[in-house]
Design a protein around this nucleic acid. Structure first.
Lengths: 240, 240
DNA sequence: TCAAAAGTGTTCTAGCTACACCCATGG
DNA sequence: CCATGGGTGTAGCTAGAACACTTTTGA
């Protein structure tokens, strides 16, 4: 049970790591996690661990990444880990313990075991889902300007994003709603920016898949709701 | 460790189920699976189980679906299962043991535990990936006509598929290659169909994501290979 | 010559990107 | 009045759906 908790800080994507105080891998940085309790499922467990161990309660979204199970991934004893992606809004500043710290994913320190691969998977998942879901809600504050949002997307995606087009794409999909209010101008002047919020705070697949879709207005053979991209999509046949 | 192995049979998507001979859920139909060995990862383990227990070796693709861990999912004792999707080409006719049988996923019998939900997840995953990857290779025989392929897609997707457009979409993406040969005409005549094969027999994401993509020809900020949809994409926050 | 099945050519459209241009504010 | 940042209008592009039409076979 491991969590790659991501947050945008200072314009870059960061991950929360904890410095190991025990062998194996003493002193190296590792993802927070713990063991599954008897009366909880993996998702509740990981949320609980984050609250208990690193005092992190502002996780806006959490989802499974997959099971990492190479027999030798942890030297010494067999450890099978279920990895999660967690996202924290950029305006949250949780007081984490002294042995944990945020690290830019672009410049990870010396990490324990296969945790660097897990972080890479988490980043890939985030990038993919930002494109076809409303997942931005989990990175953004409750209210924000389009350019602030653009900066978050840029940091998460790793490439320039046009505020103009971001606005329109998200608006067309019904993901963003205007609050009617505006932010104050900056010190150098400039038109005050309108404030927006996300319409929902739960993951929704917003971009129905254009490819091989059922004939327009068709019910489908089995009454299924058409071939929209489901909220489940994954798995890297890679690391295991 | 459970596998939802899917195959198209008689124009419908089927799943391999095994009838339980023990309590709990005696007599109900369940997904094949078993326990993880000490020196294998989950993926090798599930492949091994399929070969050992149901003599199934023709699995063309296998991938993780996720971890199912509701504390009460199996009455009696705590069971956490890692579920997999497996695909068998439609021309394989593996000799499965007498207590296992293929069942249409559209009309599942009385299934044990949460296995019906796992089958639903497997079907969703298959439908999604057929659209944006070359995953068809795992359902199709080595060589096939476009209309045979169309029938496979229709069965898997659950809605009508146009052979014309299927051809063009897959050809443009470089997924299909013509073999140069043709199939014989049917008894009622008709033009003989050209035979094709899949260019690759490994999963590849073919449909680079159109949305929020980096500005054309841009390298990206961190040297990452652009925001293509990664081969990892999933997880239903639903069942766990 | 006709029916059946395969394959091609062409039009239409959704959903983006790109970019020029207009708006509101502070100094 | 001008620099600065926000917002809109619009053209163009790409990938795929829809559908009419042509091709190749067997009877």
């Amino acid at each position: 049970m491991l969590a790659a908790v991501l947050q945008i800080r200072d314009g870059a994507l960061n991950v929360l790591l904890w410095q190991r105080a025990m062998e194996p891998a003493l002193g190296r940085w590792a993802l927070p996690g713990g063991r599954l309790g008897a009366s909880e499922d993996v998702q509740s467990s990981v949320s609980r661990q984050l609250a208990d161990k690193v005092d992190l309660r502002e996780v806006a979204h959490i989802e499974q990444l997959g099971v990492f199970s190479a027999p030798d991934r942890v030297p010494g004893r067999r450890m099978v880990a279920t990895a999660f992606l967690g996202l924290v809004p950029c305006d949250a500043d949780p007081a984490v313990p002294s042995d944990t710290r945020w690290h830019p994913v672009a410049a990870l320190p010396d990490t324990a075991f296969d945790h660097a691969a897990i972080v890479r998977d988490a980043q890939d998942r985030l990038r993919a889902k930002l494109s076809y879901t409303n997942l931005g809600f989990a990175l953004a504050p409750a209210e924000f300007t389009i350019s602030a949002l653009r900066d978050l997307y840029r940091a998460a995606l790793g490439h320039p994003v046009s505020a103009t087009n971001l606005q329109r794409v998200l608006a067309r999909r019904g993901v963003l709603v205007p609050t009617g209010r505006t932010a104050a101008s900056g010190p150098a002047g400039g038109r005050p920016a309108a404030l927006f919020r996300f319409a929902e705070q739960r993951l929704r697949v917003t971009d129905a898949f254009a490819v091989l879709r059922p004939p327009s207005g068709e019910p489908g053979l089995d009454g299924a709701p058409g071939t929209r991209r489901s909220a489940s999509d994954l798995v890297h046949p890679v690391v295991t």
